[in-house]
């Protein structure tokens, strides 16, 4: 078993969410006895508001040798914390053909979102999972841009983009339902085990139950690697 998870997000305003998703998946895998690694994209830091940022996790049953290659070379699990990233970047760069599980935070239909993928990206897609994480998350702030956090909290929180300690629980806000949807649709990690490392377990389970899946091609239809 080996998976590379790349979480794409927006600088500053949704950075913590991306970080939480990658780190929860990695630490859940680690607690299950797998080898796991969880890194920020050093190049993306210090991030700028709205710019594309990436957070990575790698999990597998063999030790991970290339510890300093921070950009996942062959990501097969991709999470987009914000829906417009669907049209923003080739998040399938390096993804083996037919193996990409794409989880998108959106209130729109998967059929609408898939329209944005050009042929070369569709070739990578295995399934598209859409979860309305904003709706499923615990609403705590007021700004739709901040999703579930206020600017005041963000100001503290932002410090951890360059490695300072977290001030808020890990696996909260929209991260939680996105983790739930990812774990439920990839079927590699037991959801109860993942729940142990996620702060907002309820929202995570809501995400695990309430999402829509577009099976673009049958599982394993294309050989990996």
């Amino acid at each position: 078993m080996y998976h590379e998870l790349t979480v794409w997000s927006r600088g500053i305003i949704m950075d913590k969410e991306a970080r939480d998703i990658a780190s929860c998946v990695a630490s859940a895998a680690r607690s299950l006895g797998y080898h796991a690694e969880n890194v920020s994209d050093y190049i993306d830091d210090p991030d700028r508001t709205n710019c594309l940022v990436r957070r990575y996790a790698r999990i597998g049953d063999e030790p991970i040798l290339d510890r300093f290659v921070y950009e996942n070379p062959t990501p097969d699990w991709i999470v987009l914390v914000e829906e417009t990233i669907v049209k923003a970047v080739n998040f399938f760069r390096g993804t083996p053909d037919g193996s990409g599980v794409l989880v998108v935070n959106s209130a729109r239909d998967p059929e609408y979102l898939v329209k944005f993928l050009p042929e070369r990206m569709l070739a990578k897609l295995r399934k598209l999972v859409v979860v309305d994480a904003v709706d499923l998350a615990e609403q705590r702030g007021r700004s739709p841009w901040m999703f579930v956090r206020d600017l005041g909290e963000l100001a503290y929180d932002r410090m951890s983009t360059e490695g300072a300690s977290e001030r808020l629980p890990v696996g909260m806000g929209i991260a939680a339902p996105l983790i739930g949807a990812l774990v439920a649709t990839t079927d590699e990690l037991p959801i109860d085990k993942v729940a142990e490392v996620v702060a907002d377990k309820d929202a995570m389970f809501r995400g695990a139950e309430r999402h829509r899946v577009l099976e673009y091609r049958a599982s394993g239809a294309a050989p990996v690697g």
Binding site: V86, K87, A88, N90, R93, F116
Partner: peptide, 18 residues
């Protein structure tokens, strides 16, 4: 909302983040 626009050419999809 940007996602309301589905014409492909209005935004350049980046091949890499940069």
């Amino acid at each position: 909302p940007e996602m309301d626009f589905d014409e492909p050419e209005a935004v350049t999809r980046m091949e890499t983040a940069f």
